[in-house]
Design a protein around this nucleic acid. Structure first.
Length: 567
DNA sequence: ATGTCATGACCCC
DNA sequence: TGGGGTCCCTGACA
């Protein structure tokens, strides 16, 4: 195969500004003919000549007028070949046939015909049994959870955006957490480092702390013992303990005490989790190191331990909910690893779980802690049914579109913490589906015991991708972060929605109302300031409808800027 | 309507 | 091993 054809090597035609542009649109055959001619030239002429010729031409033309250089070949934007074009045709994306399937990454077919698109569970190894693998496992689970229902209850899917929509972040949302005790409080972090505290039942009750971190808030965890504090980790290299009421933050560590010395030395904090039993906050950086912070003294204890490939990002940390000695980590070195907290040292991992790409997240199951769920950038969700069994290979690999895109927050499959069977998982979908002419990116609920797509939820007003999703620990509520917006989903039956979603009128604040066509995800005229809005169909518990609420929202929002440190 | 930009993994040399 | 080039469904703003 010849070297990769580049855009610069394509035939270019310099057209004088006086050339009538309408001529070119008159006939496509003409273009094709020209294509062929130029194509031959490209083959026959030595490259140097071609370049010289171009240069000469350009020189001569620039003396008179600025030339317009256009490429006449209609090429596929993906593979740069002719004969086909990739991209959106209306709301349907046409794949480049020269590339492997965008969904399952296998060659020979496109996303449109991918068997995984037709049936999500295609190729998934079914679970041998629903909940347990052996009688021993079953006894173990019954001991841990005596109230396991005999029958697996129906999944309840929060499938309607009927509570609230808000946008107070000035950059895209990176993480979400529900308050451990207050059912209506959602915490959100963004790429700018802002921390939002939002009472989504009183839509305008929100607080944004903007001075805690200087850039991306990668992860946060609320302290279940002291529900007024949240631990945050950021790409500014600091981890903080933040008081939710006051916004006062206490810096636990700063990995860049000497400031900016260039990208090769700048440390960023990604993984973060709390281990209550040990009274520590665990934090990991982009160089592969794990740090331990004592929760009482708020000081780093011990030395940093290399837990992933040196120089690679440790994306996530998760402590086992039942067995405090177990830690799960995942990173850019394509591994998820299980560690024994009692003997944490480089290379001492109990298990290494290999992946084909970066592992965006790795979580123990929320109730028994005996399953593992990982999301990898190879478009696969992996499930290990029992950490007590063989971990040589995942119990299931579920193909699901959640590719890497540098402009999106990484997708993470999240457990439903309420699901006793520990099989319901939520994750946003990257590729779109054509829903009545609109390209929408649903949020998927997947039964990881079978690989089946239980539900795909979407709203015609949400046209952006929703990579960040969190299910409520107690209520049937889903919070999702899509671009800069936050959405609260509830099950349809819980809130009497009479009208179909697209008939609901969205009442917005101030000048936005004039536009009329504004949608949830639309951001025009909506700066970083307070622009809360929601649907008219269900004003939730808010005291007043949201008519002309600019002033109200401003008065209600308290944009505090208290901080103890600056990056 | 269209262009621009932010910016992370990966691949290749 | 490192730096530079590349990149398929982005999203906001000019």
């Amino acid at each position: 195969m010849p070297p990769q054809t580049r855009r610069t090597s394509f035939p270019k035609v310099v057209i004088d500004r006086d050339t009538d542009s309408e001529e070119s649109s008159s006939d496509e055959d003409e273009i094709d003919e020209e294509d062929d001619v130029v194509g031959e030239e490209e083959v026959t002429e030595p490259k140097a000549d071609e370049e010289e010729g171009e240069e000469e031409q350009e020189k001569s033309v620039t003396k008179k007028k600025t030339p317009i250089t256009i490429s006449l070949k209609k090429v596929c934007k993906v593979c740069k070949r002719t004969g086909h074009e990739a991209g959106f045709k209306g709301a349907t994306y046409i794949d480049c046939p020269m590339k492997p399937c965008f969904l399952c990454k296998m060659p020979g077919h496109t996303t449109m015909t991918c068997p995984h698109r037709v049936a999500t569970e295609y190729g998934v190894v079914p679970a041998p049994r629903r909940n347990t693998h052996s009688s021993l496992d079953y006894v173990f689970q019954r001991q841990l959870r005596p109230h396991i229902p005999k029958m697996k209850p129906e999944f309840v899917i929060p499938d309607q955006v009927n509570c609230a929509v808000i946008r107070y972040h000035s950059r895209r949302v990176t993480c979400l957490e529900f308050h451990p005790t207050n059912d209506n409080i959602l915490l959100s972090g963004d790429k700018k480092g802002q921390l939002g505290v939002w009472d989504f039942c009183k839509v305008y009750e929100k607080t944004v702390y903007s001075e805690i971190h200087g850039c991306i808030l990668n992860n946060m965890k609320l302290n279940p013992r002291n529900d007024g504090t949240v631990y945050t980790g950021s790409s500014d290299g600091t981890a903080c303990c933040v008081d939710l009421e006051t916004g006062i933050s206490l810096s636990l560590m700063n990995l860049n005490p000497n400031g900016w010395q260039g990208p090769s030395t700048w440390r960023m904090i990604y993984g973060l989790d709390i281990n209550l039993d040990k009274g520590v906050v665990l934090v990991a950086d982009n160089f592969g190191y794990l740090y331990t912070v004592d929760m009482r003294s708020n000081n780093v204890t011990g030395k940093p331990i290399l837990i992933h490939k040196k120089g690679s990002k440790v994306v996530g940390l998760h402590c086992n909910p039942l067995q405090p000695d177990l830690l799960l980590s995942c990173g850019n070195d394509h591994f998820a690893r299980i560690w024994d907290m009692r003997q944490l040292e480089t290379g001492s991992s109990l298990v290494d779980l290999p992946h084909k790409r970066v592992v965006n997240s790795a979580y123990f199951s929320p109730l028994t802690g005996s399953k593992i769920l990982t999301t990898s950038q190879d478009n696969r969700i992996r499930v290990w049914d029992s950490i007590f069994g063989s971990l040589d290979s995942p119990s299931r690999e579920i193909v699901h579109s959640h590719d890497f895109n540098r402009h999106l927050t990484a997708f993470r499959a999240e457990w439903d913490p309420k699901d006793q069977s520990e099989s319901l998982v939520v994750i946003g979908r990257y590729i779109s589906e054509n829903y009545n002419g609109a390209a929408l990116h649903p949020i998927d609920f997947i039964d990881i015991s079978t690989g089946q797509l239980v539900a795909e939820i979407m709203d015609p007003n949400i046209t952006t991708i929703s990579p960040v999703n969190k299910l409520h620990p107690r209520d049937d509520i889903l919070a999702s972060g899509s671009s800069r917006s936050l959405f609260i989903w509830r099950p349809k039956e819980k809130h009497e929605i009479e009208k179909p979603i697209d008939e609901r009128k969205i009442v917005l604040c101030g000048k936005a109302e004039k536009k009329g066509k504004r949608k949830f995800g639309d951001e025009s005229d909506c700066g970083s300031d307070d622009d809360g809005f929601t649907t008219k169909g269900k004003p939730v518990k808010s005291k007043q409808p949201y008519l002309d609420s600019t002033s109200k929202s401003k008065s209600k929002s308290k944009s505090k800027s208290k901080s103890s440190k600056k990056p």
